[in-house]
């Protein structure tokens, strides 16, 4: 087994373990993520609180498990939607060409040119207030996916253009294959490695985007934890010096981002 395949296997196993722990948070977490132990704020790790507690006395380990579930389930879902939009629009732009191509690419460029943070601020402000934290988390990731497809679109469009001009597609068309058959049997299998790569690349981007939004108080609503709002514990250097174990979510985030990168097929694998 090559070293890249071994790395991919380890990354896959590690990610699976983290996913399983997050999915089983209800059973594994010793406490509710919202429960405040007011007699033990900012407590050091102990047998009672494995990773200690935050400033409000909430068990850090439980919050990390539930936060992982939120970030690791919603980020891939958002990445899937974003890649799907990029795949459809990129494919249409490449194969229809002409005004369609120009219009789709221009709208993607326009979206990329918009200051994302202000768009997110405006969109977040228009959401109704009385939504449950989970719905709010889903809305945050939905907004991210609806605004996050243009960069993937450019890659998909470039790949689709190459396919459009390829000999095998010309052969398929000239042999009388229907457009649907061409799409299903020829185009999609050829685009799938690009789409898969875009999917895997986008997941950590969305996780980090949510973390940034939460740092600004715009991401997942309290008391529901996410990696983003857990990382807010690090924004105060003195608090971090006093409670170094608040770094746990950052370590987990780094591990997950690396794992996603290792899982991606390398250029050699694609060839």
């Amino acid at each position: 087994m090559s070293s890249s395949k071994s790395l991919r296997l380890v990354a896959g196993l590690l990610l699976s373990a983290i996913f399983l722990l997050a999915l089983g948070a209800n059973f594994v977490a010793p406490y509710s993520y919202a429960k405040q132990f007011r007699n033990a704020p900012s407590a050091a790790p102990s047998a009672v609180h494995l990773f200690g507690t935050d400033a409000l006395g909430r068990d850090e380990f439980s919050r990390l498990l539930f936060g992982t579930r939120v970030s690791l389930l919603l980020a891939p879902a958002a990445a899937l939607l974003s890649t799907f939009i990029a795949g459809i629009l990129g494919g249409l732009a490449a194969f229809l060409g002409g005004w369609w191509e120009r219009a789709i690419l221009a709208s993607a460029d326009l979206l990329m040119a918009l200051p994302l943070l202000f768009v997110l601020l405006a969109l977040r402000a228009t959401l109704p207030l009385d939504v449950a934290p989970l719905i709010s988390a889903m809305a945050t990731f939905l907004i991210l996916s609806l605004l996050g497809w243009p960069s993937s679109l450019r890659v998909v469009w470039a790949a689709a253009r190459n396919i459009r001009e390829s000999d095998f597609l010309l052969l398929a068309r000239s042999s009388g294959s229907s457009p649907l058959r061409v799409i299903v049997r020829q185009i999609l299998p050829s685009l799938s490695p690009v789409l898969a790569a875009q999917f895997w690349v986008t997941i950590p981007v969305f996780i980090l985007a949510e973390a940034t939004l939460s740092m600004l108080g715009l991401g997942v609503m309290e008391p529901l934890p996410s990696w983003g709002n857990l990382l807010r514990g690090l924004e105060n250097p003195s608090a971090f010096q006093a409670n170094p174990w608040t770094i746990a979510p950052l370590i987990l985030l780094i591990i997950v981002v690396f794992c996603f990168q290792f899982i991606l097929p390398s250029r050699g694998d694609l060839d």
Binding site: L121, R124, A125, L129, D130, V131, A132, P133, S136, G217, L218, M221, E222, P223
Partner: peptide
């Protein structure tokens, strides 16, 4: 109680 944080201009609005 659901806690919602809003940027200040949206809150003022």
């Amino acid at each position: 109680v659901s806690v919602v944080t809003l940027d200040f201009p949206s809150l003022l609005e």
